[in-house]
Design a protein around this nucleic acid. Structure first.
Lengths: 219, 219
DNA sequence: TTTCTTGGTTAGGAGTCCTAAGGTTAGGAC
DNA sequence: GTCCTAACCTTAGGACTCCTAACCAAGAAA
């Protein structure tokens, strides 16, 4: 945690090492939030005898339409194959997940929750209740703006290669930003052929298809 | 990662397990951001031969006015004394930090960066450049709103006891929200006796003093 | 076939994180 | 002053994360 200057700065002065003061404080705020998320997930998992990555794997497995492979999960969590393989083995020992050869290519293995895994996962999903309870007090417009801001940020970081995986609207080829005049529902999803607003932006859409040429100058 | 419904929902329908759909998606977005922060810090640290908690300790030590004790650091990072003690020992072996008995109470130990530690820390602080670079493209008003939103969230979670430590304006006894009519600088800091706006909100203020009775109904 | 390549697993090592069991120091009681 | 107890920290032991490197197994190509 970096220190802050002696006086509150509210102008955007470009500073010595990259980013304005506001930008750096915003990054610090994101770090604080990240810490909260980590802590909440950890607490939820610990009492159930699970480790952080095991929890994240279970949560990810739940609600996937098609079961992922080891390499998918490694890319998703930005860790090595070995690490995921290890954690998956632990979950298999606890009989929370099932492993099968990928029917499409029998070198690969795909994973799915067992019934016990489903039940536990439903419980783990409650890690966020302290946050959602707190959010209930916030204004809908503020929340929609925050959602859009955060997704634009992760979308941007995905485009610059920082993040390997991002299945959010703002990186999807079906997404058309500000396609409509209606300020309530400016965006458009070409897959569902529906207009929608910031508050409906998806974080992790099952139908997501990457808009690869996002970094090209033309189009 | 929970799955999302088949249609984009932009109304605030209270859902089965706590929180509206928007609230849950916002929590997921915060998780994504947390993942990005973790990943960036990890990458910055790994090539320097440091582990995540070692990095966080170094960053925290830098720019503290008074050197913290082991128990302070444990509370800060929501881990046990043993864990911090361990990581501090590793940093001491690498001669990045110095340990001394607390002059005020010689049971305690206080820690400060060595010169080598200072130099390395200046480098580690650059973990956030991918984020700040991306933020440079965002509007100042959006960033100020996001900063305020995030700090209100961590402030709220601090009040409800989820987070032990929060040295942000919104939890400080010197902070008066919306004290002035000027929409550019509505808030007031009673310590510095200065009005300021959302964009100047601090994340980790050295002068912070906890506003304890925040949870009381009266006042 | 034989070879190359890709997808996973396993082994070994450093580090995180816990609980439990020491060692010091501080502050009272006597 | 001496003893006791509480506070602060360190160490030990164990499960897990995370890496790299070495290893099998199955598809693809020669």
């Amino acid at each position: 945690m970096e220190a802050e200057g002696a006086l509150p700065a509210d102008r955007a002065e470009p500073s010595a090492d990259g980013g304005t003061d506001l930008d750096r404080r915003l990054a610090m705020a994101l770090e604080r939030v990240g810490h909260v998320v980590r802590t909440l997930q950890w607490r939820q998992a610990y009492t159930r005898g699970l480790s952080p990555i095991q929890t994240r794997l279970l949560l990810h497995l739940s609600g996937r339409t098609r079961p992922p492979r080891v390499s998918d999960l490694a890319a998703e969590f930005d860790v090595s194959l070995a690490t995921v393989s290890d954690a998956l083995a632990a979950l298999r020992r606890k009989e929370l997940i099932r492993r099968e050869p990928d029917p499409a290519d029998r070198r690969g293995r795909v994973f799915a929750l067992t019934d016990a895994g489903e039940r536990l996962t439903a419980d783990l999903e409650r890690w966020s209740t302290p946050i959602t309870e707190r959010l209930a007090a916030c204004g809908e417009a503020d929340k929609a703006a925050a959602l859009r801001f955060l997704l634009d940020l992760v979308g941007g970081l995905h485009d610059t290669g920082v993040l390997a995986i991002a299945r959010t609207c703002v990186t999807c080829r079906f997404f058309v930003r500000d396609a409509h005049d209606d300020p309530r529902r400016p965006h458009h999803c070409r897959l569902l052929d529906t207009p929608f607003g910031d508050a409906a932006l998806r974080v992790d859409c099952a139908e997501h298809q990457s808009a690869e040429p996002a970094s090209l100058p033309g189009e």
